[in-house]
């Protein structure tokens, strides 16, 4: 644990009577990619502000690269991309990244290389006031790349990016993590992450309700697999009776089955032989899993 770049232990934060974070414990190791998920207002940005040292936790401890948040050593180790990143409109992209490179003590060439890596080399000499939302986001990523940070904090980095840019973005994240940098990013939907992180942590009302690899969360949620069986038009009742599923329309039957029973079900379906013309298996989607963890009912909350 001690070599973790980010180590949060039992951190809580209250704003007056509002409990924004409630005993959150989390750690991120070098080279690890961890996603923090939660609805708007679940406490993601508050957690980031704590890690940056902008605000202090009401209780609990946070260590960034072994130092207290906000200390010089911690700020040297961290790169930050805020949600809705904004820049001075009168400066060009290159001037902006060079400015932050100098603040971090990095070289000018480092800034130019970062602009190339995010694909902004051509637009680098235009004022940031003319940039689109996606370009601003990439410029924000470029400033985060300079100075070879050991921990990258990215607050909703892919909102506003088109699918292609998002793919490029995750490609970059993979490269960064492969070089040993810890990446801690937030998002408000699991599908937006495209399963590109090693671990997923889910915040609900300020409390951490999940912290595991995606496959493990999938197993934990134990959401049923949905099987759709297509039949000959006049055989749908027969199939429905023999498999026990619900008729959807004149020609298909839908079955929900727990993941471990999937193979047995498929065997039963294939045993029907020519009655079945086709079938579809759909795994629970990432959003289904996320919904399972982030909106468990209130009764459970009270327990």
């Amino acid at each position: 644990m001690s070599d973790a770049l980010l180590d949060i232990r039992e951190a809580s934060k209250r704003f007056g009577k509002v409990r924004a974070l409630d005993r959150v414990s989390l750690s991120v190791a070098p080279g690890e990619r961890v996603a923090l998920l939660g609805h708007n207002g679940a406490g993601k940005t508050t957690l980031f502000r704590l890690i940056l040292g902008f605000i202090r936790p009401t209780s609990g401890q946070i260590a960034v690269a072994g130092s207290p948040p906000g200390s010089n050593a911690a700020r040297l180790a961290v790169a930050y991309l805020p949600e809705n990143v904004a820049f001075q409109k009168a400066l060009t992209g290159r001037e902006t990244v060079r400015l932050y490179a100098r603040l971090k003590g990095a070289a000018r060439t480092d800034a130019d290389r970062a602009l190339e890596r995010v694909g902004l080399a051509d637009a680098a000499d235009r004022r940031t006031g003319t940039y689109s939302k996606g370009m601003r986001q990439r410029l924000g990523l470029a400033q985060a790349l300079v100075g070879s940070p050991r921990l990258m904090l990215l607050d909703e980095p892919t909102t506003g990016l088109d699918p292609l840019s998002r793919r490029n973005f995750y490609g970059l994240i993979d490269e960064i993590a492969a070089s040993g940098t810890a990446v801690f990013l937030s998002s408000h939907s699991l599908s937006e992450l495209e399963a590109k992180t090693d671990r997923v942590a889910i915040l609900r009302n300020g409390a951490l309700v999940a912290d595991a690899a995606l496959s493990k969360l999938q197993a934990e949620a134990a959401l049923p697999v949905r099987i759709c069986v297509k039949t000959e038009p006049n055989k749908v009742n027969e199939v429905s009776e023999r498999l026990g599923g619900a008729r959807v329309n004149g020609q298909s039957v839908e079955l929900l089955c727990p993941a471990p029973e999937k193979m047995a079900r498929l065997a039963a379906i294939s045993a029907l032989g020519p009655l079945v013309t086709d079938f579809d298996v759909s795994q629970p989607s990432l959003d289904d899993i996320y919904r399972h963890f982030s909106t468990q009912d209130k009764a459970e909350d009270r327990s």
Binding site: N72, V78, Y80, V85
Partner: peptide, 10 residues
């Protein structure tokens, strides 16, 4: 929101 990046830097 233009000051956050400078405040996060060392």
């Amino acid at each position: 929101g233009t000051l956050q990046l400078a405040l996060a830097s060392p």
